[in-house]
Amino acid sequence: LAMLRISGRGGSVDKGEAVKLMASAAKLGEPKAAYNLALLYLDGQTLPQDVKRSAELLRQAADAGLPEAQYALATFYKEGTGVAKDPERAVRLLQAASLADNVDAEVEYAIAMFNGTGTPKNQPAAVALLRKASRQGSAIAQNRLAWVLINGVGVSADKVEGFKWHLVAKTAGKGDPELDKQLSDLPAEDRAKAEAAAKKWLGSK
């Protein structure tokens, strides 16, 4: 009902009533209500901006297992928004959210593992997670996967597969001039294979 009130579906917009309903639901332990209320405190339009209160509500929702809240709270810990910076805690939250198939968390967790930021470096596991997120349609993951496959970092080089993902990411608006240049230097036969593989992937979506 709070979401209907805030959007004006099924009646007029009533943000004050929406906030009251959301707060009541959050107090009763509904994680989605706590998460949505946290976003309102973060946004600062419907409610006065209060990043600390936003962090508290995100923690409530994250502790209840809501992946979106785990990812958002991880960002807070990574950047020190409303909480003290804590890269290790951020990574633990990213890991939890990625296990629940939150694609944004998968990408961030993979990057953390690849670089050893807040967690032991594990490039093979990072690449496997980038593959998963790429198949789930993340253009950022596709771009990162293209880089590691083309340059053979943390995994055996596979230029055809790498440029396939580069071309797929490019269609989603995640272009990369440096990879474009490398693609133009690729032998014509391999370039044709990469283009065919990208076309096949895009056609299956």
Rank of each mutant, 00 (worst) to 15 (best):
E108G: 06
E106I: 02
K193D: 04
A62G: 10
A196G: 07
N115S: 12
Q49Y: 03
N122E: 11
R9P: 01
L179Q: 12
Q136W: 03
A69P: 00
G29P: 06
Y109D: 11
H166Y: 11
S24P: 02
K85M: 13
M22R: 10
S134L: 04
Q45R: 14
V13D: 10
A198Q: 01
N36G: 06
Q136E: 08
A139M: 09
V103L: 06
A197F: 08
A62K: 07
R5S: 13
R191L: 00
E161I: 10
V153S: 14
P124C: 09
A96P: 08
E189T: 14
A110F: 10
N36A: 09
A55F: 03
V160H: 07
A72N: 14
E88W: 02
A34F: 12
L145G: 01
W147P: 02
P177C: 00
D63F: 02
K200F: 06
Y77R: 12
A196D: 10
P177L: 00
S184A: 15
A64K: 11
L58I: 01
G118W: 09
G175C: 00
S134E: 08
K205Q: 14
R131M: 07
A126I: 10
L1D: 15
E30W: 11
Y35L: 09
G116A: 06
N36S: 11
A125F: 09
K159F: 06
G10H: 04
R92T: 11
L28C: 08
A126H: 06
A26T: 03
P177S: 05
Q136D: 05
D43W: 03
Q142K: 01
A141K: 01
R144N: 15
V19H: 05
L66P: 02
L130W: 10
A69H: 00
V103F: 05
L99P: 07
G82V: 09
D185F: 12
L21F: 03
D158V: 09
W201Q: 08
N102R: 11
R5V: 10
A112K: 09
G137V: 04
R53N: 00
P67I: 02
E79D: 15
K164W: 12
E30A: 11
A84G: 12
M113K: 14
G203L: 04
Q142L: 08
N151H: 15
K15R: 15
A90M: 09
K32R: 15
A169D: 02
L130G: 00
N115A: 12
S54F: 02
L167P: 05
E178A: 15
L40F: 01
M22T: 10
N151T: 12
L145A: 04
D176H: 14
A198Y: 01
K174A: 15
V155R: 08
V148I: 05
K132P: 08
R135H: 14
S204Y: 04
M22L: 15
A196Q: 11
G10L: 06
L1F: 13
K174P: 03
S7P: 02
G8K: 10
A74D: 05
E108F: 10
A169T: 04
Q49R: 13
S204Q: 12
W147F: 14
N115M: 12
G152Q: 12
G175I: 00
A100H: 04
F114I: 06
E68V: 06
G175M: 03
T75K: 13
A97P: 03
K200P: 00
G10W: 05
L58Y: 00
